[in-house]
């Protein structure tokens, strides 16, 4: 469990950014992962009074605030309307409803854990993220960036016509961390496919066919940890790529 001396509700994203420049301060997202550490913080910066818990729609994209909870992602009718069960599939295995009512989109994305279902799911969607200082960035760029002290406020998911999406993961138990995550989108025959839970960050692959992707996936790193060996993950990658591609070929819109 962490310790902290001060607790500040940021009055604006800029305020949060300023506070977050001090290395001993930290943004408080859902609090679920933060508590696993034993760090001593000076100030916890709470974004929960900035109205960042909304999912909004424009003509061309959905905009999600950083404080949207994983449970909101799972149950949002808007997300379901455009992406079917995709956002439910990438969240419903995460611990439990109570956990998902705490954990946030921003927390998951900013942490960029290698095993993140959320990061894996966002990678193939051509998203943008908004940071207080850096402004709007492609999500793929952000996902690969080193950690800095900027503050994430929003994520935009473009509403692409004829996009098909599918999310699958494998886990030793149904609510455990994944042994492999796999998310794919298909737009005009071009497949973008993210594979996570295999190294420090999920990776995004592109290809026109299943065999393209299988070939690309062979060059990725597959680490060994308590949940699985490198060989098992490599094997799972093959299986999940085949499965999501079969699903995409099935041509449902959206696919799930």
């Amino acid at each position: 469990m962490y310790t902290a001396r001060n607790y500040v509700f940021a009055d604006s994203p800029e305020h949060a950014w300023e506070l977050n420049q001090k290395k001993t301060n930290t943004i408080l997202s859902g609090g679920c992962w933060l508590r696993l550490g034993r760090r001593r913080y000076d100030t916890l910066i709470d974004l929960s009074k900035l109205g960042l818990n909304q999912i909004e729609q424009t003509d061309t994209y959905l905009e999600l605030g950083a404080m949207v909870t994983l449970r909101q992602l799972e149950t949002s009718p808007l997300l379901a309307q455009y992406f079917g069960s995709y956002f439910s599939d990438c969240t419903r295995h995460i611990v439990g409803v109570q956990f998902r009512n705490c954990a946030t989109l921003g927390g998951s994305v900013a942490a960029r854990f290698g095993f993140s279902d959320i990061v894996t799911a966002l990678l193939p969607l051509n998203c943008q993220v908004h940071l207080v200082k850096a402004g709007w960035l492609p999500f793929t760029q952000y996902a690969a960036m080193p950690y800095d002290r900027d503050v994430l406020t929003h994520i935009r998911i473009p509403l692409q016509k004829h996009i098909q999406v599918v999310y699958q993961s494998t886990r030793n138990t149904q609510t455990d961390l994944p042994t492999l995550t796999c998310a794919a989108s298909c737009c005009d025959g071009r497949i973008s496919l993210a594979l996570g839970a295999r190294s420090s960050r999920p990776s995004l692959l592109h290809g026109n066919t299943q065999s393209d992707l299988l070939q690309e996936a062979e060059h990725l790193t597959y680490v060994e940890n308590m949940r699985g060996s490198s060989a098992y993950r490599r094997h799972l990658a093959k299986i999940l790529i085949q499965r999501v591609c079969t699903c995409l070929e099935g041509g449902q819109h959206p696919c799930s």
């Binding site: 609090g31 679920c32 449970r71 611990v95 009512n101 705490c102």
Partner: peptide
């Protein structure tokens, strides 16, 4: 537990079930 896994500490925050072990008290302000 200390890892937000067990659900024993479940309470409602604005009617939604949350893990009270993971929520700082001040967030309930």
């Amino acid at each position: 537990c200390e890892t937000s896994n067990c659900g024993l500490c479940t309470v409602w925050l604005d009617e939604k079930p949350v893990l009270s072990c993971s929520v700082p008290a001040l967030r309930a302000d």
